[in-house]
């Protein structure tokens, strides 16, 4: 289990910790919000009717999966103990390339009031450290191509596109 880590910068209005099974009910709506946001970018990202139960399943699995990093962000002060964000990342093997292990950030969602103010930067630093602990030599991020906010965020922090996923319905 990853060790609890408190917020090093007082101005960042969140506290980040590893999620447990008890957090799953609070994390489900956040993950669903993210999927609904993704839906805005492309019709092939249309959210399924059973998105809630799917999210619950996947989050439950992540909690015990050694190749997953699942973090819960809590508020501070009056919002202490309120889950305000979720970070999901997975370790993937790279059989053909080096580095051999890749840490993929698959989901980051923060409630609107807890964005900016250095929060994204902080989350990225924390999740990267945990992925590195699990042996990742490269960190990647998955998000809809049309999400320009994400494109800008990662580009500013040294990320570049290395593979593309192109889709059409059949």
């Amino acid at each position: 289990m990853t060790q609890e880590k408190s917020n090093p910068t007082a101005t960042i209005p969140i506290h980040l910790r590893a999620a447990t099974a008890k957090d799953v009910p609070a994390l489900v709506p956040l993950l669903v919000r993210l999927k609904r946001l993704n839906e805005e970018f492309d019709p092939l990202l249309k959210v399924r009717e059973d998105v809630e139960s799917q999210a619950e399943e996947i989050l439950k699995r992540d909690v015990t999966n050694p190749n997953a990093v699942l973090l819960a962000a809590e508020g501070v002060g009056a919002d202490k103990d309120k889950v305000v964000g979720v970070v999901r990342a997975l370790i993937r093997e790279r059989p053909f390339y080096t580095p051999e292990r890749e840490g993929v950030i698959v989901d980051i969602y923060m409630l609107p009031l807890y964005r900016r103010k250095g929060v994204g930067e902080f989350l990225l630093r924390e999740v990267t450290a945990r992925l590195k602990e699990k042996g990742a030599g490269v960190v990647t991020a998955e998000f809809p191509t049309q999400n320009e906010i994400a494109v800008r965020f990662y580009a500013k922090r040294g990320f570049r596109p290395i593979t593309s996923l192109h889709a059409r319905s059949v």
Binding site: R36, L111, P112
Partner: peptide, 9 residues
């Protein structure tokens, strides 16, 4: 309010 579900939209 800031947590309304349509806020990302």
């Amino acid at each position: 309010h800031a947590e309304r579900v349509d806020l990302d939209e």
